[in-house]
């Protein structure tokens, strides 16, 4: 039996795919057999983040088409480093309606025995692509940034998930900028938790390492020295119910602040 988790957000560009890639690697590091499915047909990215673009032979459209479908095993791409992590890419040339929700659910049922985890990387929005991604899911991870637009969209998406009967929903907040929150220019975690009222399993700081990792095709969780990498490591722990406190950046000391004031830092 596999656990099927959809990673979704409503708003675009908040880090769904980054999160999917890192969770995929994190689970594989723990020895689980994982397949990460890209449902964002037409705007696929997950292959880039995993650095597997050049190994794609077949895609989700080939696997789920009516006439002469390809067996899914032919479409799976094994990760170079983590041998229990597989990517099921989608098509970059077709668009969202090339894939039917029922077919994806059937495919998940087929893969059920082989994998421990099926991760569904949802596209932004709440239209067809989103519906395809949530149909097979039992659990959901909502990704949001601490901006009002993203949080509102997340709220809407939680409502939509509830309507589909998915109520195991966890939250990951990305691109946190401690300084902006301190100064009250950003939603802080309390505001977000107040509004969304779902369990938060990740607070990912804004980190240049994320951009580096993305461009290198290595999920940021593998950059173990980076803040974002550590934060994603903790996400995996919390997924398994481990009690891990959220990281708080140390406050600047009086002298550091003084030095900053005089432009010495």
């Amino acid at each position: 039996m596999s656990v099927r988790i959809v990673i979704t957000s409503g708003k675009g560009g908040v880090g769904k795919t980054t999160t999917t890639a890192s969770i995929g690697v994190g689970l594989a590091q723990r020895g689980y057999k994982v397949v990460a499915m890209d449902i964002d047909t037409g705007l696929r990215n997950l292959d880039l983040l995993l650095g597997l673009e050049n190994r794609i032979m077949y895609d989700l459209v080939d696997v789920t088409r009516d006439n002469d479908p390809i067996p899914y095993k032919k479409a799976l791409v094994r990760h170079r480093k983590y041998e229990t992590l597989f990517l099921l890419p989608t098509s970059q040339v077709q668009n969202k309606d090339a894939i039917k929700p029922d077919k994806v659910e059937k495919l998940c049922n087929e893969m059920d025995k082989e994998f421990d985890y099926i991760l569904l990387d949802s596209p932004a929005g709440i239209e067809e692509g989103f519906k395809t991604a949530i149909k097979p899911a039992q659990r959901a991870i909502i990704v949001t940034t601490p901006e009002i637009t993203a949080v509102r969209d997340a709220d809407k998406v939680i409502g939509e998930l509830g309507r589909e009967g998915i109520d195991d929903i966890k939250l990951i907040v990305t691109r946190l900028r401690p300084k902006m929150i301190e100064e009250g220019d950003m939603f802080d975690m309390r505001d977000i938790n107040d509004l969304l009222a779902i369990e938060c399993i990740g607070q990912i700081p804004e980190d240049e390492a994320v951009i580096k990792a993305t461009n290198r095709g290595e999920p940021v969780i593998t950059m173990e020295d980076s803040m974002a990498g550590k934060a994603y490591k903790n996400v995996i722990g919390r997924l398994f119910g481990e009690q891990i406190p959220f990281y708080k950046p140390p406050k600047d000391s009086f002298f550091t602040r003084l030095k900053k004031l005089f432009g010495m830092l």
């Binding site: 709220d155 409502g159 509830g162 009222a197």
Partner: peptide, 25 residues
């Protein structure tokens, strides 16, 4: 008996008791 989230709507001729929040939207 739940939180009403953005985009959800309750419309009724009677009175309503909501055991949960009514979120923006």
């Amino acid at each position: 008996n739940k939180t009403l989230r953005g985009g959800q709507e309750v419309r009724t001729k009677s009175s309503v008791l909501i055991c949960g929040n009514v979120n923006p939207g």
